[in-house]
Amino acid sequence: MTVADAAAPARPPRRLARRFERYAPALILLLAAASYLGVVFGTGQTQYLTADNLIAILNRSIALGITAVGQTFVILVGSIDLSVANLISVAAVLASFIMKGEASMIVPAVIAVLGVGALVGLVNGLVITKLSVNPLIATLGMALLLQGALSANFNNFAGSVPDAWKLFAYGEIMGLPVGLVFLAVLALLAWFLLRRTRLGSDMYAVGGNRDAARFAGIKTDNVIIASHVLCSLAAATAGLYLAARLGSGAPWIGRDGVYDLESIAVVVIGGTVLAGGRGGVLGTMAGVMIFSLIDSVFNVAGVDAFAKQVLRGVIIVAAVALYAARSKRFAA
């Protein structure tokens, strides 16, 4: 890819392209917001234009947001994680199964779920780095393993979560939903980790050029493993959130939400390059907002559920094409 960069002819157009690439997520977000406004005014349903409704729109995509923050790390290092959806199911079922409606079991359940998450991430990272298995295959295999292990033991809603834990999804802090505040804090932490710590800059280096990073003395394997652990921890947290939201975990909630592919789509729409090394968590947050705005546009406009799905597929591709088409690189 460096060949392509070096072959770029003149300086100014390239700088312009870079700038465009950098602000593309913000542009798409504006576009989505404008179309939302257009639909709301166009159909005369101005009752949707309240702050409460805006919060409600965002509140619907918190699980996706938490997962996507994690997915950002792995995509930044040039890896990918297809096991998040099944890990979400495992986490949600495990949480409600251990809690069984007892407030006293919240702490053990959270520790167990995060432990499982960390373990899954560690195994993913080790298989990818030490066995040199392509990340798509490694995490796809992990997804099958998790799904098999889960459905061998559970086939329906298992256990329930206590009311205290439901606050994670339904409580409010200063008028804002707890989940939304949590997502905002998580995104800020992720931003800090990526932009202000050594691990963060190592991640960008590894994603940009793994060989160069290794020659520069970065332990690339450890960086990749760390990003996978972070990703799986985020997915486990999303599972904990969904358990709070649904009151109980079922073995299909992760797959039904298509969190694996949607989290990747959100990260990519947010301007993070699939090959790694460029992008960030703020773009991912913009991507999540774009997704939930598009959904709301369809709801307000009263689009048929199946037509909605068709449009969604087209929009994902179009949004990515918007800035991918300008790059001189050969996409794979």
């Binding site: 990519v268 799905q309 068709v310 591709v317 088409a325 996409a331 794979a332």
Partner: peptide
Amino acid sequence: LVVSVLRVPSLIATLGMMITLNGLAFL
């Protein structure tokens, strides 16, 4: 064409196609 002209990574391009076609089948 989406992959080679618009330069969208095939993972995303065919994923979008998958969502679209599933929607069309339902529709």
